[in-house]
Write a protein that binds this DNA or RNA. Structure first.
Lengths: 153, 153
DNA sequence: CCGCATATGTAGCCATGGCTACAATTCGGT
DNA sequence: ACCGAATTGTAGCCATGGCTACATATGCGG
């Protein structure tokens, strides 16, 4: 039953495939959070002062309305990644900063890898925004290994 | 105002960044369609006969409930990618087949690239499922170029 | 110190993609 | 020919992330 037919090309076994697609789908729920902490960290700068960032600023950079941003900030703070006070912007928590560091590092590596295999700068920057969220730790490690052994290409 | 502060690291100009993130977000609406046509094409095989695939089969491979699949099939057919008759499964249209071909080709290339830069097989298979949807044509072309010049690594 | 522009927050709508529970249809086996 | 299991379809719920429209707070310039 399970493989009565062996279709044509690579149809992985059902369970594995379901797991992969499920993972990719689930990852989706984290994408938004990652984009936000990454952006907030970038905008706030690395200084210890880390000024709070307002919704309208985020909205401009994200290309969505400020109302949407405010809703999502709610989720950020529910998840313990940021703190916010009415009319006082948003600041990353320790957890948020930690996530931001991981995300920004991964982002840098993804862009570097794309560049290293010959992707033009503009496409590397654009595609990395989407790709980065789906790069697992092991894959990231492989990227780093590759980059170490491949001088700036 | 626009850049009064020059934060710390690479904050691209607002408009560009908004465009990139917006593109990644918009791409999301196509991810599901791509996954479906890819899976349907894989299951149906390349033969000209192309048997219709039932919702429960898709559901098993996707790891979601059959009810969810049925809803999404509605969208597939609204978008002209597949046709379906009650209790008779789903078949890709010409447009659906064309999309499936593009998607499957891109999938193969992404997996090959991951393998070529040293990503282990299991991670390549898993991560490709998420990454592939964010690889633009130009990036894909770069991947192919790289693979041509990099014998099976 | 007041008013107005700007930023922020709230309310309420929509589509999507999940789900469960229940109804209806097919179809193989007796 | 029919009965029951498995598949398919429907209804209705939820959370999310978009949006617009409207309400409220901040804070600067006069």
């Amino acid at each position: 039953m399970t493989a009565a037919r062996r279709p044509t090309p690579t149809v992985p076994d059902t369970v594995t495939q379901a797991a992969h697609l499920g993972r990719a789908r689930t990852a989706q729920t984290r994408v938004l959070l990652e984009d936000y902490v990454e952006l907030i960290a970038d905008l706030a700068g690395d200084a210890a002062d880390a000024p709070p960032i307002g919704p309208s600023t985020l909205a401009r950079h994200l290309g969505v309305s400020h109302a949407t941003v405010i809703k999502c900030i709610g989720r950020l703070s529910r998840e313990g990644l940021a703190t916010t006070l009415p009319y006082r912007g948003v600041t990353l928590t320790q957890a948020g900063l930690a996530l931001a560091d991981r995300v920004r590092r991964r982002h840098r590596i993804v862009v570097a890898l794309l560049r290293a295999v010959g992707v033009p700068e503009a496409e590397a920057a654009a595609d990395a925004e989407g790709i980065e969220h789906h790069v697992s730790d092991k894959t990231l490690a492989a990227f780093e290994r590759f980059l170490r052994h491949t001088p700036v290409g």
